[in-house]
Design a protein around this nucleic acid. Structure first.
Lengths: 148, 148
DNA sequence: AGATAATACATTGTGCGCAATATTATTTCG
DNA sequence: CGAAATAATATTGCGCACAATGTATTATCT
């Protein structure tokens, strides 16, 4: 019928923005945007990582990441250094401040859940549905998933 | 654990972008962006609508909509006219071309489903989960739903 | 080794999203 | 009625996303 409510994509698009809006006041305290927070989270998991590795994990290209990483560098949270054995590659490492920021971020997911007034079950359901479809449409890209 | 894969928001954020990326080549043929397509869809349902009404439906504010609507106007798909009985309000109507474009858009959802290689059941599940959470976090805003 | 291709990142330009603020028009209230 | 409050849209500025292109650097292939 080509109606907004019949589309699967619109609720997804709207909900994604809505959730990020709930992150915003919490991330403001850390002086991070949501994409910057994602990059930091990936680096808190494993470090250092190349721009390519970050992009593979977050499904973002250098056109998005390069300026974002420069901003994180300016904030003193990361360092960007060319790999000596391959000057094409830029390795992203956390600074002390970058590592330390994790402790301030640790309670953000809980607070977001609370402010959105949703249960863990609902979020888990959402996550599973989204991950399933993401895996289908994005063959291989998230494959670096030795995270668990 | 503050890991990317534990977050509900990241798969949602990534999947939302991923789906929109599948819309892109199809929308390119209509010279529409995804948000522009959403606005057109809302107008195809009901017309005319004020900027506020569109924003309430799509959860977007005038800071996003005003320039977007100007671009749709430039393309000759909509007209923007101040309501004479209340000069604050801008009414958005479809032009003939705007109405006609619907027939070219009618088969987009099916093509997207196909290109993403997902089933209708999966999309329905995704839509229902997303709508449920959207309704919870967004009390009242989608209430203008006389669309069914 | 030298040309060609491939790789990794950077740059440019466009269009969102959103906060903050401005502008104009209407309501409300004393 | 006139001032203050409210409402609807517009403007400005910043940071993504993404396409297209550019620039080094490394790999490949005679």
């Amino acid at each position: 019928m080509l109606q907004l409510d019949n589309q699967a994509c619109f609720p997804l698009y709207a909900l994604s923005r809505e959730i990020i809006n709930h992150y915003r006041p919490l991330l403001d305290e850390l002086d991070l945007t949501y994409p910057q927070y994602l990059v930091m989270m990936v680096l808190w998991e494993s470090q250092p990582q190349t721009v390519n590795q970050l992009g593979g994990r977050l499904l973002l290209d250098s056109g998005t990441l390069t300026p974002l990483l420069k901003r994180l560098e300016q904030k003193g949270l990361i360092s960007r250094t060319r790999r000596s054995s391959d000057e094409r590659v830029v390795e992203i490492s956390l600074t002390i401040d970058g590592v330390d920021l994790k402790s301030s971020a640790i309670d953000i997911p809980g607070k977001v859940m609370q402010s959105m007034n949703v249960t863990l079950e609902e979020l888990t359901e959402l996550r599973n549905v989204a991950r399933k479809l993401l895996a289908k449409t994005n063959r291989g890209c998230t494959s670096a998933g030795k995270t668990e």
